[in-house]
């Protein structure tokens, strides 16, 4: 099987560059987006919009492909059920996002910008993931 890591490394690098270029590595800018009742900064909407448009095209291409360029099969989520877990988890995540104005991607990307503070966020985040795993070892 062909190795996928050169592709994922390039993808991660493009992703980190996009986050930085779009200002998403700056929590002050993300906070400006979430602060809709204050001095609202719509930049994040442009970032999301640009990414969603490109990906909407990618999904159209994917629908016509039998398999990815590397690897035998697509491994994609196929669940459609709306559960309390989904909504509760998203609410917890959003609360953390609001407190620090950082989500997982910018957290890792910020390791190159403000290493100590980004590392504090990332380590705590991995700790939170581990807590869920410890309470639900089957997942």
């Amino acid at each position: 099987m062909t190795r996928s890591w050169p592709v994922t490394l390039l993808s991660g690098t493009l992703f980190g560059a996009g986050l930085a270029l779009g200002g998403m590595v700056d929590p002050a800018r993300v906070r400006g987006f979430l602060d809709i009742f204050g001095d609202w900064d719509p930049t994040l909407a442009f970032v999301m919009g640009g990414a969603v448009i490109v990906m909407a095209i990618a999904w159209r291409i994917q629908a016509r492909m039998a398999q990815p360029l590397i690897g035998a099969t697509f491994a994609l989520p196929d669940r459609t059920d709306l559960t309390p877990r989904l909504i509760g988890g998203a609410a917890l995540f959003g609360t953390g996002w609001g407190i620090a104005s950082l989500c997982p991607g910018p957290g890792f990307a910020a390791l190159a910008i403000e290493p100590a503070k980004a590392a504090a966020f990332v380590v705590a985040m991995l700790g939170g993931m581990l807590i869920v795993r410890l309470f639900e070892p089957q997942r």
Partner: peptide
């Protein structure tokens, strides 16, 4: 920045599935 993120996600999808 968003377009770059979209290209990154497209590469992950179409390249690595």
């Amino acid at each position: 920045g968003g377009v770059l993120i979209g290209l990154a996600a497209a590469l992950m999808l179409l390249g690595a599935g």
